[in-house]
Design a protein around this nucleic acid. Structure first.
Lengths: 222, 222
DNA sequence: TGTTATTTTTAGACTAACCTAAATTTATTA
DNA sequence: TAATAAATTTAGGTTAGTCTAAAAATAACA
């Protein structure tokens, strides 16, 4: 039972959608993220259901089966390893690698993935701070908190973001807020909840509440 | 004007066929190497002709136009750079990388190719000794001689092979005849034209005429 | 040169993935 | 709860790439 390029994209989309928004994923959501039409999604859902990769009942939304989830995690593993490679070895910016990884994640060769993993030194997080699933598809579940939820005095390492638009990525670049950077919350201004961060070299960075919401801090990587 | 995965494979096949056997390439040859049927080939030839990537007249065989050749060379450049990467960085055997490179060569990103080239140190030859076209598609034309055409006393570096079957690749592996190895022809036995080679560390290797014919020596890489 | 054999092309059909437009089901709200 | 709105599915059609079987062109040879 082989999965096509397109099937893999659907499985990945469903995985991400069901991680974000609770449980059942609906047709329109999928159509949205895959840039396609609801009718096409329905066709594919029937097909994936026939292969037992999703549980699907007409009009009732959809969720991945265990084997569907396994496949999705394999794709995500590949995606994140490739992103790591592109940034660490080929010096791409972390905001430029997504589309390329989207192509590379479909290369079929378990051998390649594992060798790449070794070559890269078994990285645990991709350049956006998202955890890289291991060979068996296990994903390291880390507790991340949004910066907006921190209080003065809290500290941690920037480890992820909730928004992947290139405008936001460029904003982070400008503000010099990179994944892996250690920060301390110096103050939260009560008026508009602007957060004042202090970095290791003593610099101060002010960010709006809107931005703070989308930046995640990790306690695990310390 | 974008070229699909499949179109690229046809262009590459035509390129290789016209390099090997003189000029005009015929439908059946293409069908053979692409593992498809002549009828399918005809369909595609019409399509490629419409895009001005080949010169095609019914029943008369086919050849690449300049733009078709440019595209073919870009694919070949990618293929060979990926093979180099797989062997040099990920420690694959040079006889295992072909199928993988066949997938990777279709990744679309000029930026990626050039960064990879730089990362690898601008290699001139792939692990099979075939020259890697540069950015502009120029291929280094080197004079290669088959070992069977050498006389006692001649020396050079093993730089290519004319036969790519995995049985032959494994034979070379067993004999410890690797691309890049410096060899000297010590003697050619008149009886059956067995060639006795001497390697840099003083070892002797006997090869049959059949094998010698398929091994190429390069004067350029010295 | 005429006849057979081979190669190539056409004709017609299939599949995967997509689309639009219409029908149906579920959700919302007056 | 009936009526409207939104979401989803069905029906029918398109395109790229493939196939088989039959027809047409070229090549081989007696």
């Amino acid at each position: 039972m082989d999965t096509s390029f397109t099937e893999e994209n659907y499985l990945k989309a469903i995985y991400h959608l069901s991680a974000d928004e609770s449980k059942q994923v609906n047709t329109n959501q999928i159509a949205m993220v895959l840039n396609t039409k609801a009718a096409s999604v329905t066709d594919m859902l029937k097909k994936l259901s026939g292969k037992n990769l999703i549980n699907y009942e007409r009009y009732q939304g959809v969720e991945l089966t265990d084997s569907g989830k396994q496949i999705a995690l394999k794709i995500i593993r590949k995606h994140r390893l490739w992103e790591y490679f592109l940034v660490e070895k080929l010096a791409f910016g972390w905001d430029e690698v997504h589309d390329l990884a989207e192509q590379l994640e479909h290369i079929q060769s378990p051998e390649l993935v594992d060798r790449m993993d070794k070559f890269l030194g078994f990285p645990k997080y991709d350049p956006h701070g998202d955890p890289i699933p291991d060979q068996s598809g296990t994903i390291k579940c880390v507790e991340m908190k949004s910066v907006a939820a921190l209080n003065a005095g809290d500290a941690g390492i920037i480890s992820g973001i909730k928004e992947h638009s290139s405008s936001f990525l460029q904003y982070l670049e400008k503000m010099d807020l990179k994944i892996g950077k250690k920060i301390l919350v110096e103050e939260v201004i009560p008026f508009d909840e602007t957060v004042i961060l202090r970095t290791e070299n003593g610099g101060k960075i002010n960010i709006s509440k809107a931005a703070a919401k989308h930046i995640l801090i990790n306690y695990e990587q310390l």
